[in-house]
Design a protein around this nucleic acid. Structure first.
Lengths: 154, 154
DNA sequence: ACGACAGTTTAGAAAATGCTCAACTAAAAG
DNA sequence: CTTTTAGTTGAGCATTTTCTAAACTGTCGT
């Protein structure tokens, strides 16, 4: 292996950085070839410009909001939790934990975890009523479930 | 442990089933007490009725569609894949794999895996063009990203 | 005050995910 | 035809997720 001598001289971390840069450079080269193919000709300015356009597309909304959106998606992307949300949305009313327990096949503990995840994602709100606890779907949950059910029917 | 003698007589699987039934019975008892609390009085018919209502809520849409929806959610609930979808939606056009490579921080292989997951979830469509491959967002993706960005701004 | 009850929290085991490396297919260039 | 290039696929590892059991908090009935 040609790299062995290098490993004696350079710290591992640095090597990794260099390899990374090489990979980056390769990816950029490919983009350049692609733009040449598409545009007929292509100077490195064009590559820069395209890279800018792409990062603009990506940054159109703040990274903080993207994170929130990912949290919401992760909260919904689970059979137990999605079932709970769907039921609460369909109910259009508060339901008690003990009622929700009837619709999902997990232990009481699992149910509690699921609900607290949904609260954290802003999909559900909880309210304590004496010794019972009741949950209801938020507007966010209603909007998402509605669109999901609409966009996935064919 | 009182259960040890049982374990000699009954197969493990059967014991598990029995424990399950006991847990179920307990959950139903709790629901009964809850309904008594809420309605003032409650016969076991009322419990049956409530259980029916709940399962109706849950079964409002077919289990097959629910599965599709879960697949879609799982596909979106990942930083790499969600970024790709957002960029493709914002672009309102096909993008080449080599362009997409510029916006997500994974290897070429990881990118390919991500895209094929999105195709499977019906969020993205791929088209081969010579030696390049181009992807575009589907209507489903547009609808979902739009609602997500709308429902998570405050 | 005590015990029973409704629900939550913590810790940890089992299962699913996400990524990379390496081997592969298909198209274009030499 | 051989090599290079663009992208995909499969295997395997590391991390994360999801669930459960057990201990815990707060509320009610007695």
């Amino acid at each position: 292996m040609g790299l062995f001598p290098l490993a004696w001289i350079l710290p591992e971390a640095l090597i990794e950085i260099l390899l990374n840069q090489i990979a980056m450079a390769r990816a950029t080269e490919r983009l350049q070839r692609y733009l040449e193919d598409e545009l007929g000709e292509c100077r490195s300015e064009d590559v820069e410009e395209r890279l800018d356009e792409l990062s603009t597309l990506e940054a159109a909304i703040g990274p903080e909001q993207v994170n929130t959106e990912l949290d919401v998606l992760s909260a919904l992307a689970n059979e137990t939790r999605y079932t709970l949300v769907r039921v609460l949305v369909a109910a259009e009313a508060e339901l008690c934990v003990c009622e929700l327990h009837a619709v999902v096949d997990v232990t009481e503990s699992g149910l509690s975890h699921a609900l607290s995840g949904l609260v954290e994602a802003g999909l559900v709100e909880g309210r304590k009523d004496g010794r019972w606890k009741k949950y209801r779907a938020t507007n966010r949950a209603v909007a998402l479930v509605t669109v999901l059910e609409g966009s996935v029917d064919e």
